[in-house]
Design a protein around this nucleic acid. Structure first.
Lengths: 340, 340
DNA sequence: CTGAAAGCGCTTACAG
DNA sequence: CTGAAAGCGCTTACAG
């Protein structure tokens, strides 16, 4: 391997001068710089990041930890975060935590090990206490899955408000027997811990508010977070005495499964029942029927994550901020009654 | 920060003994190990990976470079690679290359900089020559997008054979006017360079073989790789004098867009036209109609990628291997004619 | 503008 | 089974 020392010897200067010519940290005469850069090129020198990191105590890399890449929402979110950090001049690395406490601890550990300068994490498995403790050791921004009471930088989704608005849309379209897919119960929501994180609970609360306000009936079903789970939820609903006439799904992924599960039994959307999701993933627009959904302002979310992490890296003692992004309800075919 | 030296002093042993107790590289008496581990726990010591990497010359991290995470196929592939390497005891990091030459060069550069011990890359932008040159400097396994003539470890998709089988299925279901979505032309395929990589060209060749064998007519359209591109392709097909009766799409993502684009104009699948895709992404099963598709043996592909990279890391001079995985054609609603 | 020395925190290689 | 010394390849801090 070619080292900085090799370049220095070849160019007849000190390693310090090579370092300075490459990093621009200290001024180097134009002529010397030219010579160094030519030598670097000729020998094919590449800086050794391990050595640089060891000495500098930082890497220029930001970690992005999401539950899984195999998800409509999280793959899109990861993609957008990578792009945004890249535009801010920061390299990124994406890790899967599998929504587990262990995976999330590993992401923090990688950060503390100086592998990353900072961490953006969509935390589901760690408790608020653990996150608060860990966040003291490494610059971190937590993405919208928990309520963290402003002890850590946090960018939240409009979980409650968005769900309420989506449910209201169903009511305003004439639905009177609602269902929520992604909540095991309609009672004791506050006590209930869903493994999928607090976002699910908040979305159920928003649903419940609109149900009460609209004076309509409601039922709940839950079977997991995947499209397969959505299919199972549809089967649960089909087993009821009377099929609901409006279904709010706490994620688009679940909604896709629900629509598929209904189709398996000849039940059509929107003809027989209206369906709305949450997240507004790209596929929502391209499904048949296209899926109505709550669209959180991801541009804003990603932008805030980048800003907050940069600020935190620069100033570890800055006061934590908590930002909740806005949303719009995007109405598509799945909640639009067709004329016959 | 707590260092190994701190632990050693506190435990009354040498740093070497701490290192040995933690790594197990050399035997340590049970009693000493116990003492060291307790001290590590008590002080909250974490090994510094930068220092370890600098000394060892390796990191234990494997890079996975895919064009984008915002894709049905590549997010799933990335996810499966992460899982497989994790089971093999290797940490992984996922990078997006944006299907660009620059992004792919960056992935190789990160590897050379000792950030990764090895690289798995789905290369679209780099030429065969460039890949061959770069692969001499870092252990690398190339995934199925180019034909690399066995100068580098390579796991290929059954692009040609799979496409041929998918197209045959359309013919066997009675289609006589076929279309391919994802190829700009049916002539001069060999000369034609699609920015999406050689896989698209190979899939077009497979289509063409089955078309010739079946003695049916064919047309081609191309507008990009996204669902939006699929919609545009559907519009191109709808503008023809006569709509094709069977459509082979070179990816499921394009097929999803095509089905949506047809629905925009009241054309139904499978009632009015049959559609089949390629990749068998998870969504294919959950769409309405569910999408028939070519399912490459991803278990095998991922398994080979892990094996080949581990072998290459262990023995940089091993003879390169080229493996092509098998496939099945999964028939679903989109190619199944319904009784009326 | 340039350089010699020291050290980041580990592990290798030598020694006992 | 345990340790003292050296060094991985950089950059910081001191000096001129």
């Amino acid at each position: 391997m070619v080292t900085m020392r090799d370049v220095a010897q070849e160019a007849g200067v000190s390693p310090m001068t090579v370092s300075n010519a490459l990093t621009g940290r200290r001024p180097v005469s134009a002529r010397t710089r030219q010579l160094v850069l030519e030598t670097v090129e000729r020998l094919g020198y590449q800086v050794n990041v391990a050595a640089r990191s060891l000495r500098q105590g930082r890497t220029g890399v930001v970690g992005i930890a999401v539950p899984t890449l195999d998800s409509h929402y999280y793959s899109q979110l990861g993609h957008r975060l990578v792009l945004a950090f890249s535009q801010a001049g920061l390299a990124t690395v994406v890790e899967e935590t599998h929504a587990s406490r262990e995976g999330e601890l590993a992401a923090f550990r990688d950060s503390r090990l100086n592998a990353y300068d900072g961490l953006v994490i969509a935390a589901l498995g760690l408790s608020e206490r653990e996150i608060n403790a860990l966040s003291r050791e490494v610059p971190v921004v937590v993405l919208g899955e928990q309520e963290l009471h402003q002890t850590v930088d946090h960018v939240s989704m409009p979980n409650l408000e968005g769900s309420e608005a989506a449910t209201r849309l169903l009511v305003s379209r004439g639905c009177r027997r609602l269902a929520i897919v992604g909540s095991p119960s309609l009672d004791d929501l506050a006590d209930f811990v869903v493994p999928e994180g607090a976002a699910f609970t908040l979305r159920a609360e928003g649903f419940l508010r609109a149900v009460r306000e609209g004076g309509v009936s409601a039922t709940a079903t839950h079977a997991g977070v995947t499209q397969a789970a959505g299919v199972r939820c549809a089967e649960n609903l089909l087993a009821l005495d009377e099929l609901p006439d409006g279904i709010f799904c706490v994620t688009d992924t679940l909604a896709f499964g629900v629509v598929r599960g209904l189709a398996d039994h000849g039940v059509r959307v929107p003809d027989d029942v209206l369906v709305i999701g949450f997240d507004d993933v790209e596929d929502a627009r391209y499904r048949v029927p296209s899926l109505s959904s709550v669209a959180p302002d991801l541009d804003h979310l990603v932008d805030e994550a980048v800003q907050l992490l940069q600020r935190r890296i620069a100033d570890p003692s800055a006061a934590p901020r908590d930002v909740t992004v806005g949303f719009t309800v995007v109405e598509r075919e799945s909640t639009t009654r067709r004329g016959r």
